[in-house]
């Protein structure tokens, strides 16, 4: 039984780890991967202390910092369910190993939202991708679609018009991203913008070969011949593991108060998985620190720890 279990390896979970370790709490850090969404961030210019740093480099600094502390790390483990067992908590993982602790900080962040259409899961990694900066170059000289209308979709489309043969930008609504990006896109000659089109199906034959879309108003159906589908329709919180334990808001985020407390005593949450306003690295890190200090007070109050 650990004093504290920190679930999630992004800025919130890692900052919490530093604070928990400095309070000498017997701490377990469980994470699918170290870094969370920061890994996918190429340039960071708003994290205090760095005028510019790349995501992977910042994560490496975080990792080095936490590895100096004697906390137990289970990296590569995804918590599938968190339950209350008497006065403690139990985490079930995808490896069938279970872990227990007296207090928990849930800091699992967000993941890319899926389209939820037939063919999407089947062709994930086989033409369907959620990381344009990663996989973009693999589709050089081919036809692709970017699905979405916000800034991340527009940026992906801007990157892809430079390397792909042709890009279809498919958005369910009118484009909602920044005007400056929309202006830049209007210069591209190999781009076709389909606004108010619903993506209905991704088709393929071991790899993606096309996508079916339907006009929201017109009902007109089109088949787009392409090899790649870049899904850029926002993020959803990784809150499944606690959905039976706490109330989620309508976005699926864990509701917390200003002390990072949930209604369940001993269960704290921090960072992008919560309803904290603004999702930023610096905010997630601050929330993680706060959650760890609050969890320490909780353990002191219940006399589990005397330091």
């Amino acid at each position: 039984m650990f004093d504290l279990m920190i679930i999630g390896g992004g800025p919130a979970g890692l900052a919490a780890s530093v604070y928990a370790a400095r309070k000498r709490l017997d701490t377990l850090l469980i994470a699918t991967d170290i870094g969370g969404q920061v890994i996918r961030t190429m340039g960071i210019e708003n994290y205090l202390g760095y005028q510019f740093i790349e995501g992977p480099e910042l994560i490496e600094k975080f990792r080095t910092q936490i590895s100096q502390f004697p906390i137990e790390q289970k990296i590569g483990y995804t918590v599938t369910r968190l339950t209350k067992v008497d006065t403690a908590f139990q985490a079930e993982t995808d490896s069938s190993e279970k872990f227990q602790a007296r207090a928990v900080i849930y800091a699992t962040g967000k993941k890319p939202r899926k389209l939820g259409v037939p063919g999407e899961d089947e062709y994930a990694g086989k033409g369907v991708t959620y990381c344009a900066i990663c996989d973009g170059p693999v589709f050089a000289g081919q036809r692709v679609a970017v699905v979405g209308g916000g800034n991340s979709a527009l940026s992906a489309a801007l990157d892809m018009v430079k390397i792909a043969e042709h890009v279809d930008l498919v958005s369910l609504t009118k484009l909602t991203g920044d005007a400056i990006l929309i202006d830049k896109l209007s210069e591209a000659r190999n781009l076709n913008i389909l606004t108010e089109y619903q993506t209905e199906k991704i088709e393929g034959n071991s790899l993606v070969t096309g996508m079916r879309v339907r006009g929201v108003k017109s009902g007109e159906e089109k088949r787009l011949d392409l090899a790649g589908v870049f899904v850029e329709i926002g993020l959803v919180p990784n809150s499944e593991a606690v959905k039976d334990l706490v109330k989620l808001n309508r976005f699926g985020e864990v509701k917390i108060n200003c002390r990072c407390e949930t209604p369940v005593p001993g269960l704290y949450a921090a960072g992008d998985v919560t309803d904290v306003p603004e999702k930023q690295i610096v905010i997630a890190a601050g929330e993680g620190a706060k959650a760890a200090l609050q969890a320490h007070r909780y353990l002191q109050r219940l006399a589990y720890v005397h330091y």
Binding site: I59, I133, V138
Partner: peptide, 13 residues
């Protein structure tokens, strides 16, 4: 890998 892919960097590191 691709040069712009952060997960590639993670694997190589």
């Amino acid at each position: 890998s691709t040069p712009t892919c952060p997960y590639c960097k993670r694997v190589k590191e």
